[in-house]
Design a protein around this nucleic acid. Structure first.
Lengths: 222, 222
DNA sequence: CCCTTGTGTAAGCACCTGCTTACAAAGCTA
DNA sequence: TAGCTTTGTAAGCAGGTGCTTACACAAGGG
């Protein structure tokens, strides 16, 4: 699973003052910060936290590595910043009854689109090594699970919701990191149908039917 | 999750020829090799591949680190060896219709028992970083999925089986690595009941509509 | 005795890591 | 011009990494 499409800035060793067509304005602090964040997201997603080096990130962003420490302080803080961006937006902007399907489709879309936000890959690849990553995942996962649990009237609703979240993560792991076939190339609609059908009883608590989200026939793609 | 119980050999810097009561026979190649493998499994499981150092492993095993390279050649080869041991035993020794529940219970038991085989933790923590880890996981997962797929008459049986395997991995990830509550401390029986019920329609028979399976409640409601 | 083989060790090498420091230049005000 | 802040860079530091080398000691055979 090669990514292959990134910002095109390479580490230019010479950096001479000759007439090079610099693709970005120099001395643009906000732009530089953003490029570092994007490059960090890509490198963390590809290699995981430990294997990613700040020299790699700086090279990909086209900046000197000292700038990374000026802007973010440390490699760990950079990872935290990468993880923090855009984490909860989906959570607060999606009605709870559609939350799981939305999150699932987000996970499924990640493998396909090359330029999709690689947040999930960063999470998955950094969980094993970085100290802050499991905490971030746990905190985010708990909020998702709590929102999901509110839908169910079962007394162990939170556990059920976390089981559903675990399935999300596992599917993402298999598709994005491991790349197992045929799962990795399967149609999102097909996977979505299977998963939602299977979870119907787990999340829908039995009394009220799960609603449209659990219909076997997948809805039209958004 | 403190381990706390291992071979008690520490790296002794002096190593004087005085009358030291060595708790293991010296010059025992097979025993030394085994101790290295066990120590490597523990350290890889705790820290992940990248963060684990051969000096740590050697220290935990009570041997000189040069021995690790004599016995295994490289750190990567050591990881491969650790992953290879005992991977497929369960696969070939379990009838297919019990395979999923057996694997699930193995995953669930891992968090509780401190001295359980940490193979899953090694997998999960090393997936993000090591090169060979995803390949090993993919190969092993494909065999499990193939065995599971043989049970189903659906034409996409393999996909369904891999979805089930993904759930396994995700639950393990949440329990062992992330440690999310209440999932991490939940009773294996309870989780097992939920998961098996939910997967009934997915793995059982592709022809049976999923809604039917979700209609019945889990048998014992705690 | 020496020689060989198998097992274990101490010391180091070459390299890489995150991070820091000293410095240069751009932009701005006066 | 000078002075100041902001943005960027080159060079290096202290420490850790995987891995190698040279060596020590036990055991067995001639």
């Amino acid at each position: 699973m090669d990514i292959g499409e990134h910002t095109r800035h390479q580490d230019r060793p010479g950096g001479g003052p000759a007439g090079e067509d610099s693709p970005h304005r120099t001395r643009d602090a906000r732009g530089t910060r953003l490029r570092i964040l994007q490059a960090a997201g890509a490198v963390f997603a590809e290699r995981g936290y430990e294997a990613a080096t700040v020299r790699d990130i700086a090279g990909r962003a086209g900046v000197n590595q000292a700038l990374i420490f000026r802007y973010f302080g440390s490699k760990q803080a950079l990872l935290t910043e990468v993880m923090a961006q855009g984490g909860k937006e989906q959570l607060v902007s999606t009605p709870p009854d559609l939350l799981f399907e939305t999150a699932l489709r987000g996970v499924l879309a990640e493998g396909g689109k090359p330029d999709a936000d690689r947040l999930l890959a960063v999470y998955l690849r950094s969980i094993g090594s970085a100290d802050a990553a499991p905490d971030t995942v746990r905190a985010l996962g708990e909020e998702y699970a709590a929102a999901l649990a509110a839908l169910s009237s079962a007394d162990d609703g939170e556990l059920r919701a976390q089981l559903a979240m675990a399935w999300l993560l596992g599917i993402g792991l298999m598709r994005v990191v491991v790349g197992q076939e045929p799962l990795a190339s399967a149609e999102p609609d097909e996977i979505c149908g299977h998963v939602l059908t299977a979870l119907e009883g787990l999340l829908g608590d039995g009394k009220t039917p799960g609603g449209r989200a659990a219909e076997r026939q997948p809805e039209e793609r958004r």
